[in-house]
Design a protein around this nucleic acid. Sequence first.
DNA 1: ATATATTGATTCGAATTTGAACAACCAAGG
DNA 2: CCTTGGTTGTTCAAATTCGAATCAATATAT
Lengths: 162, 162
Amino acid sequence: MDEPRWLSQVEMRAWQGFLVASSLMSRRVEQQLKSHEGLSHPQYEVLVRLSATPDGELRMTELADAVLTSKSGLTYQITQLEKAGLVRRRDCPTDVRGTFAVLTEEGRRALHDAAPGHVALVRELFIDALEPGQIALLADALETVGHRLRGDDPSPSGPPVR
Amino acid sequence: MDEPRWLSQVEMRAWQGFLVASSLMSRRVEQQLKSHEGLSHPQYEVLVRLSATPDGELRMTELADAVLTSKSGLTYQITQLEKAGLVRRRDCPTDVRGTFAVLTEEGRRALHDAAPGHVALVRELFIDALEPGQIALLADALETVGHRLRGDDPSPSGPPVR
DNA sequence: ATATATTGATTCGAATTTGAACAACCAAGG
DNA sequence: CCTTGGTTGTTCAAATTCGAATCAATATAT
């Protein structure tokens, strides 16, 4: 790492743009959700994931992976959501250690109520700021980056020695 | 807002991709910086901004705006950096209320040491994952989104009446 | 069967973030 | 001059995040 390849101007713009967009978008989404249904963004994501499931339930670890948070972070959020009545915990019948997070009816309603405003904001600040062609390219590019970040990666930087 | 326009599949992919990339990238960068020079990402950004200045100093409010953090958040980080000896505070001569954050020599060295590893990570996970053409498109798209988020916006939704 | 390793979820402490409240101060107009 | 409004940075409490440690239970291997 003696002589690093610095970023070109356009690479810098992309990276800076990414940081700025991430940071500002995150705050706007957070504020919007909090002011509407009193949800945090992580909480909203939890509800979305649960609702996307046939039974409205998911194991804690699976859910933590899905919403990209630590296990302890999810424990905290589920506790909050449980206090709010939007989710409840259910013990796993086949594994005593396991716990399901289950979407309640009230949780489903909260999501139903929060979704339109949330989508409207995302559309206003993100989607509608861009040309349709840009959206498609963004989707591809960001998914590529996501794969590399996840590690389901064809070559992290030269093939793994195995 | 009675009947919201939901996201199309490709719009969903773009948005999800953005969330995933933001979240994972943020964590990776954080870990990398912390393990190398013991800096957090916000702290690194502070050092970068200060070093980009002729005198290596910036008013607190300006700096807070530059690194996209709240004023109180910056106060906290500068205090941390001051404890670490990488930054010091200097009272503004012309405005008693004002404070400059000033990069110390040690701070400059810490940035100098941390930068290569940081850039290498950004390159590995973000830049080098993409084709040059994708980088350029990302740069444009994300800057557009950034402008809208900042509000220096030609049309938040319909041109301003002026 | 029994020892060993792995997994599932929670608890805990430390670090960080935000917005509101605050105190002191500058700037401008009357 | 002096009031009025906006600015500057900090303090404060509350919420949230993470990783390490923990404890129990399960899976695996011998």
